[in-house]
Design a protein around this nucleic acid. Structure first.
Length: 922
RNA sequence: GGGCGGUUAGCUCAGUCGGUAGAGCGUCUGCUUUACACGCAGGAUGUCGGCGGUUCGAGUCCGUCACCGCCCA
């Protein structure tokens, strides 16, 4: 006997093990060799990660799709894996070293540190995978990949070298967003612009050969040490006469030109701006336009670097002022700012200090204030790669769902900037570039290839004799020595997203033409959050098209972000994450999954409420008890049972409703409307199957044995089985468990590998009409007696009804008596005095309540109905009285309104009669 | 500054051909009805943010304003 409560904690682990042991999630199961493939690649979570609500939503939706397609018979590959997450992981391990008071990464050295990270990955990298399993994710774990696996790393090298040869990866010296705490460059996307309160310092720069000053306004006075010019707008009436003159940079003594450039907005600040090309993106452009030098005044940690800084000292005469400034060497930028402002104030060079609100770039990982920094970095020519991706979306080869995201995608792709892909950290794919003693760069997939290229080059320029070149090339030991002595590999690693961009095909074996690649690529859909459209989706599109010539997926389903109570994005650094596993522990994975699916309406963020999860836990219990009811009543799956052959109207009706629901659920999942699918199956299970079918079926199941009983038992079990299937993608654990425990003999297969209901052609409008009437009648009686507070059993009179209605009433009398507490159903030609009138689908029935009923209550009830009828009539009359409506509205709409009017009038007349009779009863 | 989304019942949210507003939770009333109190039955609750327009008809389309949020600069 089934227990009366479903206990998720006791079941989920066991069920998951069964799935894995059966290889249920394995792609390429032999019996599906001829099936159509279906493939989703998981957005690889960080190995550092632990499951948060965003993962839970993301994984639930993918699992729904995968389980759905698997049940539809397709050969499903849900490709799992994790991302090495360069900066994040390196930071975690470094923090750990610090906490344990062990030597830091720099002290350990590169190789030791990387070994340390691998060790860390080995011991805790599996955490997130186990958490995904707890949610029920049906990934093919045998194919789990990691972005730093050998195979994937090979793909990375191949793409890097290929893009470099094609001129689409290049090295460039330009300003990058520099994170001074992580001491690495980051990409534009990793910059968070934060609205910050600050000051606008107005500083007076003396003008050479006069007593005058030009006042520049800046939010970053410390960068003035790198100033190379002052700019004013050429049309600035007040200041344009200064163009061509020279200013003397305070604290330094550098002579800098005053130039005309329309970047200097006359309305802003003082109208004049200092130009610091090495420390400001806009100034960099201004400097380039005017051929100005670049003076970098910071080191990698954004501390001042002044002594021995030739650029800084060039052309600056020695002075006490300069010496004082040089003493700031090594100061942090913010300390330097404070000191410098004090000195300027003392010198009377601060014109004013204006409080201001401005945006300051911060690193999204470290939270540090970023510094525009002049460095050599590797870039991807994203503009070129973006073109085919833009085309593909425009042509519909890849569609976003909801489609509004396409605008976001285009907007970014059309304005895309070069992608800085080098990072000055150690954990990641080391850039396959080797430098020769002359600075020549050799990019190759292996060191051996680089050596070969280098030898060819140095023979070519006669640094190495052809004979030596030949000898070195022929001898592995000498090649290694040559590499060691003459070549130096680039220290940097690639942006994590570089390898993620290859994920849809690198996980399938690319660059080898593996059977998996052939079968599952392009994948079938991508499911992800909008926050990584730029980071990941766009880059997969670019790389996929470049490397394989095909879009990596035809559909990108963009789901909502699960936000915290204030609507802020949940993130580890903010510490505002809700732990989904706590909810799983408390209510079960199925309840959480169903909640997320039900709330996954397109285009809206999710604020999760625990009450909702509790409600769907109750739903699982309801389902559980429905199965228990079936078991108690001997309803077991009948092999080969065909619902189309059912004779009982009630059974034909539930078959009809089941088929309708199956169609709704199927259609909704196909359209990625997970919430519609969830509510359709919820409503059916609870409000149709449990509330009505199982209740109506009770007299049959407790009645005498016979054909009706056996057919009904079979139908109860059949409908339950359909429910388990329809619900399985949403609630895999409880449905799988019920699939097993409700079986008399072992089922053919696990439910996870079961067949999705395909119930076309099961429909019965007549059954629907008949059972619909019974339901409406019972509801009307219940409502009336509740309103009048009558609990005793009552007879039901069918008042001057036609024969076929009477027949129907008799057919269902037993059911009506049971469910509406009716003592007997009889036919009456007249309406008895003092009876309560109900109208159900146009037929009048009466509850003889003379002496029982509270006349005042009944009068009130009728008055309420009368008011509603009047309101309906008034509304329809207003419509039909409008000649424009009759003339312009579609004919069927007008007809419908006329019918409604007739119905409302008839209703009103009956209510009037009833009120009349009530008077007679008094 | 540019763009996007939101504003619907006390709360959280559905409502994708324009045709009399829905769910869950909460709330109120009544129930030891032989699966389930994580339950059953019944009830109440909305100038669909404001204003204007299109239309026979607008929560739904257009314009505008307000507030909230996000993305980009």
């Amino acid at each position: 006997m089934i227990e009366n409560r479903y206990q998720p904690a006791a079941v989920e682990g066991r069920i998951y093990t069964e799935w894995e042991q059966a290889g249920a999630f394995r792609a390429g199961r032999p019996e599906r060799a001829a099936a159509q493939p279906y493939c989703i690649v998981i957005p690889p979570p960080n190995v550092t990660g632990s499951l948060h609500m965003g993962h839970a939503l993301n994984v639930t939706l993918q699992d729904i799709l995968c389980r759905f397609e698997r049940m539809r018979g397709r050969d499903v590959l849900w490709q799992p894996g994790t991302d090495h997450a360069g900066i994040a992981t390196q930071a975690v391990v470094e923090r750990q070293l610090l906490e344990r008071q062990q030597p830091g990464s720099r002290k350990m050295g590169r190789d030791a540190f990387i070994r340390r990270v691998w060790e860390w990955k080995a011991e805790s990298g599996g955490t997130i995978i186990n958490q995904l399993k707890r949610l029920g994710a049906s990934c093919d774990w045998s194919r789990e990949r990691f972005t730093m696996d050998d195979g994937l790393s090979r793909a990375v090298l191949k793409v890097f070298v290929g893009l470099h040869r094609a001129g689409l990866i290049y090295k460039d010296k330009r300003l990058v967003n520099w994170d001074p705490t992580l001491e690495t460059a980051i990409s534009d996307l990793e910059v968070q612009q934060v609205e910050t309160r600050g000051n606008l310092w107005h500083i007076k720069y003396p003008i050479e050969g006069s007593d005058g000053f030009i006042v520049v306004a800046t939010t970053r006075p410390e960068t003035m040490l790198g100033d190379v010019a002052v700019a004013v707008h050429p049309h600035n009436e007040r200041l344009k006469h200064l163009i061509g003159k020279t200013a003397v940079l305070p604290l330094v003594g550098r002579r800098i030109p005053i130039i005309g450039d329309d970047y200097a907005d006359p309305e802003k600040g003082s109208g004049a701006v200092k130009i610091t090309p090495a420390h400001d993106f806009n100034d960099f452009e201004v400097g380039r336009r005017h051929g100005l030098p670049l003076i970098n005044i910071f080191d990698e940690t954004a501390a001042l670097e002044l002594t021995d800084n030739d650029d800084f000292l060039a052309g600056v005469p020695a002075s006490a002022e300069l010496d004082a400034t040089l003493s700031l060497h090594g100061f942090d930028r913010f300390t330097a700012r404070k000191t410098m402002v004090e000195r300027l104030e003392a010198a009377g060079l601060i014109d004013k200090i204006e409080p201001t609100q401005h945006v300051v770039p911060h690193g999204d990982r470290s939270g540090a204030v970023l510094e525009p920094f002049l460095t050599d970095q590797w870039y991807v020519d994203a503009k070129t790669l973006a073109q085919p991706a833009i085309e593909a979306v425009r042509e519909g080869k890849t569609a976003f769902v909801p489609s509004q995201w396409e605008a976001t995608f285009f907007n970014w792709m059309e304005n895309i900037q070069p992608w800085c892909i080098s990072r000055q950290i150690w954990w990641g794919h080391q850039i396959p570039a080797w430098y020769g003693p002359d600075g020549k760069i050799f990019v190759a997939e292996t060191e051996d290839d680089a050596v070969a290229d280098a030898l060819a080059h140095y023979v070519d320029i006669e640094e190495v004799t052809p004979e030596d070149g030949h000898d070195i090339a022929a001898d592995p030991a000498r090649r290694a020595r040559f590499a060691n002595e003459y070549l130096h590999r680039d220290e940097d690693v690639l942006d994590t997203w570089f390898s993620s961009a290859l994920w849809p095909f690198s996980t399938l074996g690319w660059p080898d033409q593996t059977p998996e690649l052939k079968r599952y690529y392009p994948t079938s859909a991508l499911v992800t959050g909008f926050d990584i459209i730029f980071f990941w989706v766009a880059r997969m599109m670019m790389m996929g098209l470049y490397c394989t010539g095909k879009v990596p997926f035809p559909v990108v389903y963009i789901h909502a972000l699960v936000r915290d109570a204030t609507g802020a994005k949940m993130s580890k650094s903010k510490g505002n994450v809700i732990d989904p596993l706590e909810l799983v522990d408390k209510y079960g994975a199925d309840a959480l999954r169903f909640t997320l699916a039900a709330m996954a309406a397109q285009g809206r963020d999710i604020k999760l409420s625990e009450q909702r999860v509790e409600g769907y836990r109750n739903f699982a219990t309801k389902l559980w008890n429905a199965a228990r009811f079936a078991e108690i009543n001997g309803c077991a799956t009948v092999e080969g049972f065909d619902p189309r052959q059912a004779k009982e109207t009630l059974n034909r009706w539930i078959a009809h409703e089941t088929a309708k629901t199956a169609a709704e659920v199927t259609e909704a999942i196909e359209a990625y409307k997970f919430n519609d699918a969830a509510s359709a199956v919820y409503r059916f299970v609870w409000n149709i199957y449990c509330d009505w079918y199982l209740e109506l079926v009770k007299p049959i199941l407790t009645g005498p044995d016979g054909e009706a009983m056996s057919e009904t038992r079979a139908m109860v079990a059949w409908a339950r089985d359909q429910i388990l299937k329809l619900l399985h993608p949403f609630m895999p654990f409880v449905t799988e468990e019920l699939w097993a425990v409700t079986a008399l003999s072992k089922r053919d297969s696990l439910l996870a590998l079961g067949k999705w209901p395909s119930l076309e052609g099961i429909g019965d409008a007549k059954a629907e009409a008949e059972i619909g009437w019974v339901i409406d009648l019972i509801a009307a009686i219940r409502s009336a007696r509740a309103e009048m507070n009558v609990n005793v059993p009552l007879p039901l009179l069918m008042v001057h009804v036609g024969d076929h209605v009477w027949d129907r009433a008799q057919r269902w009398s037993e059911f009506i008596m049971r469910m509406a507490r009716i003592s007997e159903v009889t036919r009456s030609p007249i309406f008895p005095r003092g009876a309560v009138q109900l109208v159900v689908r146009g037929e009048v029935v009466a509850l003889p309540l003379a002496g029982i009923v509270d006349l005042a209550a009944e009068r009130a009830r009728l008055a309420k109905e009368m008011a509603k009828a009047d309101a309906d009539i008034a509304r329809i009359d207003a419509k039909l009285g409008n000649p424009n409506f009759v003339a312009r509205a579609p004919q069927d709409v007008v007809e419908e309104e006329k019918e409604k009017r007739e119905e409302a009038l008839a209703r009103k007349a009956r209510i009037a009669e009833a009120l009349e009779r009530l008077k007679g009863a008094e």
